[in-house]
C-alpha cells in the first residue's frame, strides 16, 4: 500500500499539532535530526544524518535534576520533561540501534526513566535507503538498507509517494488517521522489490568475531592497532549505539544540578578513578575495550553486536582508522594455541 507524499505531508502537518516531530533537516552542520513543524522542512534526498538520532532519546548533555538549599530545606526538582513525539525518517541502521539502546537503558535490572519515558512516548517512522553510501555495511550486521526492524511504521520512498508498512501496534495507532492508502502499481512494486533486495557494497564478516575476541584479550594484535588513533571522541559521538555517559554535579553556592553528559571510551579521562589510578590509561587498552564492548561484551550481555554498520565512525575519523579494517584484522589474527 502507498500514500502520496502530498497526502502524507498533510497528515504530517496535522500531527505536528499534537506531537513533537523530529525529522532530518539540512542545516549548517549538514543533515541532522531537528524538531520540525511542517513536512516542507524535511530534507528529502539524504543518505543518512551526520549525527545519529540517538541524541533525541539520550541527549549529549541533560539536566537530570536540580536542587536548591534554603536554610535547612532542600528542594529537588525533577527535570524530566516528556511529550509525545514522532521520529521521522529514521534509517534502518539507526532504528536497529535504538533496539540496542533499549537493552542498555531498559533491562531486567534497571530502567532509565529519562531514556525510557522518551522512548515510550515516541513513534519511529523508518525510511528505507534508496541510495547506499560506500561506507555503509549494514548488510553485514543482520539488517539491510530496507529492513523495518525497530520502526513502528516503515516507509519506502517511491518518488512522489511512500510505500507504507505498519509494523507495530504503536504504528497502527498513529496510522489510524491516515486514510487513502492505495495499491502499488506493478512498476512501483518492482521498485520496492529492488530497494528491498539491495545490499551494501561494503561487507565485513562478523560471524565468528565474538568467539574469536573471547580468546584475544592478550593478543599482540592490539599492540599496534591503536597507534594512529588520536583519542578523540568523534567515532563515539557519531555512533548510534555508543551509550556511555558521565554524571556530574554543577554546583553554585546553595543550588545546583545533576547533569548527564556523553562520555567516550577513547578519552583517557573516561576510566580515571578518583584515586588517580587509571585502568585503561593506554590507547591500546582503550581500543581493545572499544572492540570488545561492541563485538564481545555486548553480545554476551545482550545477545547482539553493538554495531549496526552505519559507517559514521568511518566518515568522522580524522585519521581514517576504519572499523571494517579492524574487524578484518581481528578475523585474520592467528590464535596461538597453548
Amino acid at each position: 500500500m502507498k500514500i502520496t507524499k502530498e497526502k502524507f505531508g498533510q497528515s504530517f502537518d496535522a500531527l505536528a499539532a499534537d506531537y513533537q516531530i523530529i525529522a532530518p533537516v539540512s542545516d549548517a552542520g549538514g543533515v541532522n535530526y531537528k524538531a520540525v513543524k511542517s513536512f516542507s522542512e524535511v530534507k528529502q534526498d539524504y543518505l543518512n544524518s551526520k549525527l545519529p538520532p540517538k541524541s533525541f532519546l539520550f541527549p549529549q548533555h541533560e539536566k537530570l535534576l536540580s536542587y536548591k538549599k534554603e536554610g535547612k530545606d532542600v528542594t529537588i526538582k525533577n527535570e524530566l520533561k516528556v511529550g509525545k513525539s514522532i521520529l521521522f525518517g529514521v534509517r534502518p541502521c539507526d532504528a536497529k540501534a535504538m533496539l540496542l539502546l533499549d537493552k542498555v537503558f531498559k533491562n531486567d535490572e534497571y530502567t532509565d526513566p529519562y531514556y525510557y519515558e522518551r522512548r515510550d512516548n515516541s513513534v519511529i517512522i523508518g525510511l528505507a535507503c534508496n541510495k547506499i553510501s560506500p561506507t555503509c555495511f549494514c548488510s553485514s550486521m543482520s539488517i539491510s538498507p530496507a529492513s523495518s526492524e525497530g520502526s513502528d511504521i516503515f516507509l519506502i520512498d517511491l518518488g512522489d509517494s511512500y510505500q507504507v508498512e505498519v509494523i507495530t501496534e504503536k504504528g497502527k495507532a498513529l496510522m489510524a488517521g491516515l486514510e487513502e492508502l492505495v495499491e502499488l502499481s506493478a512498476e512501483e512494486q518492482a521498485l520496492v522489490d529492488t530497494i528491498k533486495s539491495a545490499q551494501t557494497a561494503s561487507k565485513v564478516d562478523v560471524s565468528t568475531i565474538t568467539a574469536k575476541l573471547d580468546k584475544m584479550f592478550d593478543s599482540p594484535f592490539w599492540d599496534t592497532l591503536h597507534e594512529k588513533c588520536l583519542s578523540c571522541n568523534a567515532c563515539s559521538f557519531a555512533c548510534p549505539t555508543c551509550h556511555c555517559f558521565d554524571i556530574s554535579e554543577e554546583v553554585h553556592k546553595n543550588e545546583g544540578s545533576r547533569v548527564r553528559t556523553w562520555d567516550a571510551c577513547m578519552a583517557p579521562l573516561f576510566t580515571l578513578h578518583g584515586s588517580g589510578h587509571n585502568p585503561r590509561d593506554k590507547k591500546k587498552a582503550r581500543w581493545r575495550q572499544r572492540m570488545m564492548h561492541k563485538f564481545n561484551y555486548f553480545v554476551h550481555n545482550n545477545g547482539d553486536i553493538a554495531c549496526v554498520g552505519c559507517g559514521r565512525c568511518i566518515k568522522s575519523c580524522p585519521v581514517n582508522l576504519d572499523i571494517r579494517q579492524v574487524i578484518d584484522g581481528v578475523n585474520n589474527v592467528e590464535l596461538v594455541v597453548d
Partner: peptide
C-alpha cells in the same frame, strides 16, 4: 545558558 545552577 544552561550550565546548571550558575545563574546567580
Amino acid at each position: 545558558q544552561d550550565g546548571g545552577g550558575t545563574n546567580e
